[in-house]
Write a protein that binds this DNA or RNA. Structure first.
Length: 382
RNA sequence: GGGAAGAUACCAAAGUGGCCAACUGGGGCAGACUGUAAAUCUGCUGACUUAUGUCUUCGUAGGUUCGAAUCCUGCUCUUCCCA
């Protein structure tokens, strides 16, 4: 089985006025049209959304899972027994797993960081577990994601230069160990997996450059930009993307981890990013925030109480025109689970529409002007 | 008819002389949420207004007191028990 396959990503189109690109990423579970947004399914489910809705209504082409969470529950034994996450959650498209690097950041008060790896206390029962670059690769083999991520430290956006530098050193040594171990092991379920390195370096251009150059030497099928949208100013995020994308190979997909708002996504596409994931459409949806073609709605606000217009007349999912705003507000106010489901489907549908439309605009060389109009629209708070 | 308990802000419910514009929960209103410890979290919720000020409130009408949601009296209403 080839370790490296240069046919994995076809860069179909680039534009003059923008760094935006349209591409096609091939995986053993299907092709992905980029730019793409990947719904987050931490525990093997995109919260509140059926696979059928994800695929047919929302148009998702790839979803995420999380190594830390799936390792704790249901555990690798179950995942191996069933033949990997695809067979467990019955998503037959591509899957990407995050390595647990983000949990090094988000669970910082119940973990200990060391050269060897990270010792976590389970947030479920307090039990202690060690994650190392090596065992994280193995766990991701067990999960069986098509794209797996290197184990990194996602340092806070407010880190000092000294901390960021130290952290990056660790991430880079871990990357080497990840790659070494990944290349030494084989997939468990008969299809190929690929490992994406993660570029860290906080908001410091020289660190980001160093990190991107280091990552690029490993010649992988794709690269991720991590450690952004974690507390730093938005402008810093954009300039880091610019710095890193200057260095990452043109013919490989770039994945901006954990980002972001619809506007963030458009700005990042403009700067040459191809892949995105974020909990925002689902989490914020559950909490009553809707991203629509006309602007952002807080459906809990009183003004929607008797607004019987449909959720989004230009929306692409069935919920958009099936349900009215007042009803959705009622469901969310009443904490009815259907409300969370409708909001999640709507928001994911919007995100997927956004990247699909971006791709269409890139292909016909009108991305830049379309983006400006969209950003104005997306800034509206209804 | 007799007896007992009770009446507190939108609802429920603490508070039995000053630290009470009044605990707490719900509801309501608003905000937050970016590789998901999140169907979660935060703030506000008498009025005027925003100073750590004034005014009006704890069924109702009086009274005691420097001071009352808290003590006393009448009235009204509610619930329960006995006839």
């Amino acid at each position: 089985m080839p370790r490296y396959n240069d046919m994995k990503f076809d860069l179909l189109h680039t534009t003059e006025r923008s760094k935006a690109r349209a591409g096609l990423l091939h995986t053993c579970h299907g092709d992905i049209e980029t730019p793409i947004f990947m719904p987050v399914g931490t525990l093997g489910s995109v919260k509140g959304v059926h696979m059928r809705e994800l695929k047919q209504d929302i148009g998702a082409q790839i979803i995420l899972g999380n190594t830390y969470h799936l390792y704790l529950r249901p555990g690798t034994q179950i995942l191996e027994q069933v033949g990997g996450l695809h067979h467990f959650n019955s998503w037959d498209g591509p899957i990407l797993t995050d390595s647990g690097g983000f949990q090094v950041f988000s669970l910082s008060d119940i973990r200990k960081l060391a050269e060897e790896g990270v010792t976590f206390q389970s947030h479920i029962d307090g039990s202690r577990h060690q994650f190392t670059p090596e065992n994280v690769m193995e766990t991701q083999r067990s999960i069986g994601a098509d794209i797996i991520m290197a184990f990194d430290e996602c340092a806070p956006g407010t880190s000092t230069y000294e901390y960021a530098q130290k952290s990056l050193g660790l991430t880079q040594r871990w990357l080497e160990r990840c790659i070494h171990h990944f290349d030494e092991t084989k997939p468990l379920y008969g299809y190929e997996q690929t490992l994406f390195p993660i570029v860290q370096g906080c908001v410091y251009p020289d660190l980001r450059i160093k990190a991107a150059e280091h990552a690029a030497t490993f010649n992988r099928d794709g690269y991720a930009i991590g450690g952004l949208a974690v507390g730093e100013p938005e402008q810093d995020m954009y300039s880091m993307i610019e710095v890193v994308n200057e260095i990452l190979p043109q013919n490989k997909p770039r994945y901006l981890m954990g980002v972001g708002t619809p506007i963030n996504i458009l700005e990042a596409i403009d700067r040459g990013v191809d892949m995105f994931d974020c909990v925002m459409p689902t989490r914020n949806g559950r909490n009553g925030m809707l991203f629509t073609s006309k602007g952002v709605i807080n459906i809990r606000n009183q003004k929607w109480t008797s607004d019987f217009s449909v959720i989004d007349e230009n929306g692409t999912t069935f919920v958009d025109t099936q349900y009215n705003k007042a009803y959705l507000r009622h469901l969310i106010q009443s904490k009815e689970m259907l409300g969370a489901q409708i909001a999640s489907i709507h928001n994911l549908g919007f995100y997927l529409w956004l990247v699909k439309e971006a791709r269409r605009q890139i292909l016909k060389d009108t991305f830049k002007s379309w983006k400006e109009i969209m950003i104005k629209q997306l800034s509206v708070r209804l």
